[in-house]
Amino acid sequence: MSDANAGRLLEHGTEVPFSEIEAALGRDGVQEGKRASSLALTATVVVVGPPERLSDAAEALTQLTDIAIRAILISYGDRATPVVRVWEHAVALEGLTPHYLNNAVAALRLSSLPTLVWWRGGPPELLDGLADLADRLVLDAEKPVPVWARVSALAERAATSDLRWTRLTRWRALMAHFWDIPEVRAAAPGFNRLRIEGSDLYAARLYAAWLASTLKWTPAALEVHEKPGGAAIECVELGDGEQGLKLRTASSSTCIETAARVHGHAGEVSRIVSLGDQGLCALIGEELRIRSRDLAFERAVAAVGGLE
């Protein structure tokens, strides 16, 4: 979608009958005498959720100006015949009764493109049907526990991830970098305390579960502190009281400061690196670049329960 028009898709798209969607998309590709931009589409992105959670997703997709996608936005309601709007390569279905969600996705997906379903909430049982229609499920529910409980089954049918997990990508990479330092690897068996601070306790627990499942380790002391209003994760400390590793957002919030304090030659290591764009657009963009099953996520989700 181009930024100039699709950002207002939900308000200003052309209203058409469902059966004429593809023809309308073709017409909208040539507007006011202008030829449609030449794009090699890479995916169909289906955003599903309650109406109040669709506008920011639509905005994020409009910002994806450098990834050519075909966007479908479906909001729940009680209509068997929803309002349908199209704009360039995008379709919005408003107020669809959840019962017909799978039918709509089945009709609108294209066999020639991978389909990514961005799940922004709703009855979790609907995911079972979507998993058969999607190549990739990206969960993004406000309360993720009920859908996380389904991940192991869903992942057998479609690669499954979660935007909370996407937010942890750089935090995970930075922790992994420490493990390349021989002195850290030597000290790691003694690390028994994990403290995580941030605004999203679910993300914090997922991070802890990733460490536990990957290192096959259970922290003797796990502290998860909620810090409302800030970033999902703001600080991670792992250590034994004397030696340890610390990751925390820098004052600018766009960077992460990392520091290792362990015994041995050059055991003090610190640096500042970019946290990367944590906006919805960047996060969904990252998910669009991944096509394979994410076993590390599946293991981490499975381990979350063990930390409760």
Binding site: W179, D180, I181, T214, D294
Partner: peptide, 21 residues
């Protein structure tokens, strides 16, 4: 060149990084 294997690199989305350099 990364001996022994780093378990935390398993499944990382960012591409591989070199060891200390």
């Amino acid at each position: 060149v990364r001996m022994p294997a780093n378990p935390l690199q398993d499944g990382l989305r960012l591409e591989p990084t070199p060891g200390p350099t």
